[in-house]
Amino acid sequence: MSTRKRSKRDRASSKATSQAKETYLPGSLSEGSDHVNQSDLPPSRPRKEILTPVSPPGHRAPLRYFIYTLVTTALLFTVWYTYTTAMELRQWKEEVGWWGMFVGRFGRQHDGLYSNQWRGQEVTGELEGHLSQLAFALGIPATDLASAVKPLVPPATLSSLAPQATSEAMKVLVEDLR
């Protein structure tokens, strides 16, 4: 198709030819690009917008309220973490003291067996209790567990536990020392 502008005479002649073709071929579309019958087109639908305009969140609130909220939240988090850190440092100081904190010592073991050894208390009853609990959890007799653990216990520890041995498991542990 040419890109030149059509004159009125060219349009009139093309309409005449398309009308002539329509008379000869009823019900068919006309070949002319200018002529389209409204009856050949589908009914028009109402046009609706694809996206609805939406305002951004907080567009009515002033910026200072947002900044005040942000600063308040940051301040609350800072206070909370400062408090928890202070409480942990206080607990650490109670466990190791000021000098222990200064040289970087960590707290003592929380297991009753080790904490009592640090304080110089007797651990015989607790050791018997731990052996019996472990044996019960494993489903084996406490004496079998004691004989299995015996090679792993240092002889000095066994000699210090020998005078207080009352249960069968403790007697199995210290039997060669008596």
Rank of each mutant, 00 (worst) to 15 (best):
K5P: 01
R6P: 04
R6G: 00
R11Y: 15
Q19A: 08
Y24I: 01
G27S: 07
D34H: 08
V36P: 12
P46N: 10
P46S: 10
R47W: 05
E49D: 10
E49F: 11
I50A: 09
T52Y: 10
V54M: 11
S55Q: 12
P57Y: 04
A61T: 13
A61R: 12
P62K: 07
R64H: 15
F66R: 14
F66S: 12
Y68E: 10
T69H: 05
F77A: 12
T78C: 12
W80Y: 15
T82P: 01
M87Q: 12
M87N: 13
E88V: 15
G97I: 13
M101P: 02
M101S: 04
F102S: 07
R105V: 02
H110S: 14
L113V: 06
R119M: 10
G129T: 14
S132A: 15
Q133I: 13
A135N: 00
A137E: 12
D144I: 01
S147Y: 11
A148W: 02
A148H: 05
L152H: 13
V153L: 09
L158A: 03
L158Y: 03
S160F: 06
L161V: 06
M170A: 06
V172W: 01
L173K: 03
L173Q: 06
V174S: 03
E175G: 03
R178M: 05
